[in-house]
Design a protein around this nucleic acid. Structure first.
Lengths: 205, 205
DNA sequence: TCGGCTATTGAACCAAAGTACAGTCCGCCG
DNA sequence: CGGCGGACTGTACTTTGGTTCAATAGCCGA
């Protein structure tokens, strides 16, 4: 499996090198150098601020290998657009080597690579369309793992409150707030209040 | 990576054996024999005519490993249902060993496995909806007040990243991240990263 | 009644976040 | 040209967040 990586600048990242030792990095004007025939994947980097259309049109003349987009700032909207434009996948430019290898494996076998968050969203939105389960059940799964008091603390913290503010609102000491937060982090396997916020507010991460 | 396979009858298929030589096959009553702790995957076979609810409830008491459903008669509807029930994936009972290895790889790393046809369908059917939604909730008012670089920092922090992680991703020092954050807080009249997360992720406080 | 869970709090500690006060380098614009 | 804003970095500092040792007290089911 041969890999060709396109970037505005011929800059090989360490993670790429590790995941694809035989990869060749090319500037976009060197598209015509790619041979056809052997199995391979095209990777194309979309840097911050670049227009996807420009990037895609730049490699328009390349042989028909599966295309994976490297996004400096990935978002579900970008992934969707890339897939609609015919790409086989889209992943973070700075993804870990193991992830890249996995992407290559899937895409190389004719599959599509979709990030976790988008996949969850797709599954969720279709489920809603089919009108089966309520979306609240999944959103509140974190709440079901916590005690009543912990849920109160979690909601306030996720809304942006400091420990002191939570303490004041609930008429307890800051120390107790910390104790509750510790229990919450433990139960939900979270690192800090930021991740709690993300979890509670249902962000796609 | 340890694999446990559940089936009504303890019948190990050749393809399973080849893909997962160390797998242990168990009848559904032996759920309690599974240890926790080591990394692993539960595979559970849904034979023709069996009710998914019965199968899933049978392994209800098992430790929390990712679950993959083996379907004798897979359909997109079944896959959707399995994912909704919390499974990490669903594939044909008689899938080729290479496919099984790939499923194991993805699921073992915390991913979801969705078959190609369903994935294509999901992408196609929800493209419009998703695009619209992301356009609506875009609410770039915060982004328009910030410089390009600050938007990058804001997105990463709002997603739950620490200063160190942001610094690593953007290849700058932690100090610079703090500088950007300071400017962001000033411009958006925010107090800390938590409030930033709330603002960026569009919570209705 | 006893063990387990929850709620509460304290002291002490370390790490992370954020601020204050600096500076350099670059491109743009009047 | 000189001023301005953005990106970037440094040292030193304060504040907040989170953890590790505790402890007390109430409730509930076995």
């Amino acid at each position: 499996m041969q890999h060709w990586i396109f970037d505005r600048e011929a800059e090989m990242l360490a993670s790429w090198q590790e995941a694809m030792p035989t990869a060749r990095i090319l500037s976009r004007s060197e598209v015509s150098n790619i041979p056809g025939g052997e199995p391979g994947i095209l990777w194309c980097r979309l840097r911050s601020g670049e227009a996807m259309d420009d990037v895609l049109s730049a490699i328009h003349g390349a042989p028909r290998y599966p295309l994976v987009l490297f996004c400096d700032e990935p978002s579900d909207a970008i992934v969707m657009k890339a897939l609609e434009a015919g790409a086989a996948g889209c992943c973070n430019t700075h993804a870990a080597p193991e992830v890249l290898r996995q992407v290559a494996l899937v895409v190389g076998n004719g599959g599509l690579w979709v990030g976790q968050s988008l996949l969850r969203q797709l599954v969720g939105s279709t489920a809603r369309t089919l009108g089966q389960r309520s979306r609240e059940e999944k959103r509140d799964d974190w709440a079901q793992l916590l005690s009543e008091r912990e849920v109160q603390v979690a909601r306030l913290v996720a809304g942006g409150a400091s420990n002191k503010e939570v303490a004041s609102q609930l008429s307890i000491t800051e120390r107790t707030v910390k104790a509750h937060l510790g229990a919450i982090f433990e139960k939900l396997s979270l690192r800090d209040r930021l991740q709690l916020s993300v979890r509670v507010n249902g962000l796609t991460v």
